[in-house]
Design a protein around this nucleic acid. Structure first.
Lengths: 247, 247
DNA sequence: GTTTAATCAATGGTCCGATAAAATGCAATG
DNA sequence: CATTGCATTTTATCGGACCATTGATTAAAC
């Protein structure tokens, strides 16, 4: 081994052409210079402007599309329209994370316990009449479905999401929507509700709804906390906590 | 207008070839049939197996790459390796959501208040010695940096993230990492810390660290809650809450 | 004149072939 | 034995062509 001077050159990463173009377009969208609803230039125009090949331009558009920043249509007045990424975009990302890492149901329920009481508090504070009406309507259907396990589960999920949406806190709503589906999936394999448990849930929802309607923030928080914490304790006993993995 | 029978055919969506291939590969990865570290076939092999063109195959790979499911390298022993999406993937998605929607700092701080107390509780419960050592080390640097605003802010962020990581709850860690950067960015424009506030923060961190070290879950929860709630109240007075938008 | 059909134009989707660039392995060379 | 140069494999990029879909325009039919 001959002794050589080391030149202290950091590793150089060569970005791909499509990544550069995608970054530029993304920045324009994020900064608001390309508002939602506006159209990007056509692929062939972008080829002329950027000097890249159509392949690279299209790669860039695919990146933005999978980030939820544009949506592309074919045909004559088609093209790539700017569409801001919705909560579903975040949900997809979280779902991939949860599934590929085999996140345990216990962790997801812990997550709910952390988030839902605050959502209930904010719902009590910020709810509109329309939002309250939606929650109330879902609650009525919830009560009616107490004997049909399948629709009971679906409506239960919808009710919790409606409460979340009433909070007005977009990041927390997004998180709630993101973990709701994996939780629901995992419960199908692990947990079988009993009529008794469903009756308890109906009672809990009732008092939470009352608190939100009365704009009683502390009551909404505390009752929701007891509700979801109870759910967690029932669903994840100390033994055999299953990972969430698609089958 | 002639009267015609309507055939009640639902709108038919024609999926793109690349989407189909991407879905199949994604499913194999999510199901674990393609574990992390394994290599997908080469592009040309996928062309032969799928019967699609190289363009479509590459489009599919670009989709998976931007989802964080594979990472592609060029060169002889190159190809597309399966790489499970990390928390950074979730963070990018959330960041795009926050920036494009102009989510208000108030909402992000509310999010922190909802999440961090639970993270502190879980950290007190699940911390390892290594994690505790890391938090302690960061705390020491935090105390030392109390006069250098720039490094103070950076270390403050790191400390909170270290506590989050010590909790062991991956979804909540991901959320915390996702909102930390937008919060930090927004604070730069809005909030100027004073020496007095920094001293208070140091004190708060000290007691939280003690609670985590002593595995006192309730104390960790309550002290963290007071800390981040105080932060929220100082940073977002009732007037002039700025949206978070990149400049 | 109104409605219907046929045609044209614009755009993204797909395919093919070729070359460039990068990473690895191997042999030649001093 | 270390270094260099060459061959090989793989993705990255390019250019061009054609197809499919959509919307607009024109022509035909009634």
């Amino acid at each position: 081994m001959t002794d050589r001077t080391t030149s202290s050159i950091a590793p150089i990463v060569v970005p791909k052409a499509s990544d550069i173009l995608a970054s530029q377009l993304r920045q324009m969208i994020v900064q608001g210079r390309l508002g939602a609803g506006t159209f990007l230039p056509t692929e062939r125009s972008l080829v002329l402007e950027s000097g890249l090949s159509r392949t690279s331009v299209r790669d860039a558009l695919r990146i933005l599309e999978s980030e939820g920043l544009i949506s592309t249509k074919v045909g004559r007045s088609g093209g790539s329209m700017v569409t801001l990424p919705g909560r579903d975009s975040v949900a997809r990302s979280v779902e991939l994370f949860v599934r590929t890492h085999g996140i345990r149901l216990e962790s997801l329920l812990e997550c709910r316990v952390a988030v839902e009481p605050t959502l209930a508090r904010l719902a009590a504070r910020n709810r509109t009449e329309a939002a309250l009406a939606e929650i109330t309507a879902l609650h009525a259907r919830f009560v009616a479905s107490v004997d049909d396990v399948k629709s009971y589960k679906a409506i239960n999920l919808d009710w919790h999401l409606a409460v979340a949406r009433a909070s007005g806190n977009e990041p927390l709503i997004a998180l709630m929507e993101a973990i709701a589906m994996p939780i629901s999936d995992a419960m199908d394999y692990q947990h079988v509700t009993t009529a008794e448990l469903r009756a308890i849930a109906v009672k809990a929802h009732t008092v939470i709804l009352q608190a939100i309607a009365a704009r009683d923030e502390d009551a909404a928080f505390n009752r929701m906390e007891r509700h979801v914490a109870g759910y967690r304790d029932i669903a994840t006993p100390r033994n055999g906590v299953k990972p969430v993995r698609q089958v």
